[in-house]
Design a protein around this nucleic acid. Structure first.
Lengths: 342, 342
DNA sequence: ATACACAGATGAAGCGGTTCATCAGTATGC
DNA sequence: GCATACTGATGAACCGCTTCATCTGTGTAT
């Protein structure tokens, strides 16, 4: 028996039952006798039948899909997304499929209403937002999302009265650990490469940790060692050149992301500085290549497996109407060669 | 006027027209007077109305979605996907949205029928397959896809009588360019790090190019310089250690991917070899970090923007029923520091 | 014997669009 | 004046599934 594009009615006919019974049997409903159920499922397999998701979704008002929105630090011009988020994407996909959800990705803001559109058009049951994005325009979107009753989870800091739920890492603590480590190694002139702007609160929090560590150790801050940099290709390099031009002595760098740190190390070497002997370097994120550059990069690790699972658990919880809590995860310093600790 | 979850019927009522007219107006059908159309579209905007994709898809048998399947070299155990494919993912998403398509990602083989399921369940209108995957199991899937009339595009080589359409880069030529370059720089003992197995024909083709270059230059191949390696973290490192254990002199390495090359450079330094003075290194793919490691990596670039657009154009063409041709793109050698050419 | 519960199955409504067939009304041709 | 064409709109069928309301037949209590 061959049917080109079988429907549940075709299966019902072959099995000699009603179409409604087929629908139940395929979803393992206890209202169908086991014998009947298995017979129906066997026929479905034989015919290569799969439930039409559009029809099912239309009826149930669900799509079993999660939309993943990736923000870019650099105004979307560069196609390069921070590898940290790209690898997170992998874990999110895996976690989602455990719950039976597909993942739809979007990397650009199609319309002004993209954020609402995904759920309103029933393409996705909920959203996950990723990125060290610009929080000023970002938060406006969040408010709109909340107004439109969209379910969403954010990767990032939990900011007071910020709408929605989030999972993030304790960036202040992370920045503090990194800086502390450098201070304990005897470094006293630690340059900061990154953003301190409130537009990127995650990165700004890392700077806050950097300041806190100085304060705790009684080491004065030197504002002239603070160089703005984004996580785009070439930014770390440029930042080091800017730092050198300032002619301010420094013996360490805390870069706000690994992407910046790795790029900065290249600039240091090109300018005749040895890492870690002349300048110790610590990054943040622990992207997969951090371990594989030379010297291997000391950095602050965020557990992205846990983060991804938390984000997915959260959004699934929201979809089911369960209470969901925002979480702050503890980051962990990973000591490698670039800091000179060994 | 407020409606919580507006449908086209709500809009029809407000506009004083039939629901059918609303449907047409929203899709800019010329069968609706312009004045009427704009009035309807305005109401839709005011109500935050978006077409229910499930309903539309049910009727039209389309989903306007492309499924992107990522294969992993390492049997799916490691969550790390080659950055080359991750960045390709970004370009594919962009290209797809230009055509009005969403992208659904999948990184694991859920069921045995995952490949058929996406289209049969109307979740996606077509598939794009990415990865330096194992072609033995892979090709069996391709055949099944073709049998099930699934539309799909493959990133990879066009193999004789392989079912389906593909876009790939001329890996033989790329391998040849890389090896030629090393030979012209006077290197005579070039180690090959990668796979020569027919299970990964893309990588094997790069090896073929390596052989061809040797042949053209009249330099004999040394089989003892051929070290198997995958593109997983730590593999390049391990491969170099294996190479050193063989105690076979070598003055260059051609690594079949940048991931391997970067890892290999680290191993070389850890063992006291200078790159490029003692050992010149050339990679393949030109992942974003190739430029930013120390020394910067000479490699063979594949134009992933073009590749992504080609894959999307191809799958969209197949969906529309247009004829689609498989393409082979020319790779380009990018000379940086790791080969010692400057 | 009658009532009742219950397991297993069925019929039909409805989800929210798209599109075919149809129609009213005005303009055009002979 | 009547047939014809064309524009702008309508009504209704239909896509394939989920689920509520029903129904049938068998087993158990009264």
């Amino acid at each position: 028996m061959k049917v080109s594009n079988p429907t549940s009615r075709d299966i019902a006919e072959i099995a000699g039952v009603s179409q409604a019974t087929v629908s139940r049997a395929l979803r393992n409903s206890p209202l169908v006798r086991e014998e009947t159920r298995e017979k129906i499922q066997q026929i479905a397999r034989d015919l290569n039948y799969f439930v039409n998701r559009n029809a099912a979704g239309l009826r149930t008002h669900q799509s079993n899909t999660i939309a993943l929105l990736l923000f870019d630090e650099t105004e979307g011009r560069h196609a390069v997304i921070n590898p940290f988020f790209l690898s997170m994407l992998g874990f999110i996909t895996r976690a989602a499929s455990k719950h039976g959800y597909d993942v739809l990705i979007s990397m650009q803001q199609l319309s002004d209403d993209w954020h609402i559109e995904y759920q309103a058009s029933h393409r996705a049951d909920g959203l996950i937002l990723l990125g060290y994005g610009d929080y000023v325009t970002y938060r406006a979107k969040l408010a709109a999302l909340a107004r439109a009753n969209t379910r969403f989870m954010i990767w990032g800091p939990t900011i007071n009265d910020q709408p929605g739920h989030s999972i993030g890492c304790d960036n202040i603590n992370g920045g503090c650990q990194a800086t502390n480590h450098l201070l304990q190694l005897g470094r006293r002139s630690i340059a900061f490469l990154g953003s301190t702007s409130k537009r990127s609160p995650e990165l700004a929090a890392r700077y806050d940790g950097y300041c806190a560590a100085h304060h705790d150790a009684g080491v004065p801050l030197n504002e002239r060692l603070n160089i703005p940099a984004w996580s785009a290709a070439g930014e770390g390099y440029r930042a080091v050149e800017e730092l050198l031009q300032r002619r301010e002595p420094f013996d360490a760098i805390f870069a706000v992301t690994d992407v910046i740190a790795i790029d900065a190390m290249r600039a240091l070497k090109d300018n005749g500085y040895a890492v870690p002997d002349d300048v110790a370097v610590v990054g943040f994120d622990d992207i997969s290549l951090a371990e594989h550059v030379t010297p291997s990069l000391t950095t602050v690790r965020q557990d992205i497996t846990l983060a991804a699972e938390g984000l997915v658990d959260g959004i699934v919880g929201l979809i089911r109407g369960e209470p969901v809590e925002s979480t702050l995860m503890a980051p962990q310093l990973v000591v490698r060669a670039s800091c000179g600790a060994r």
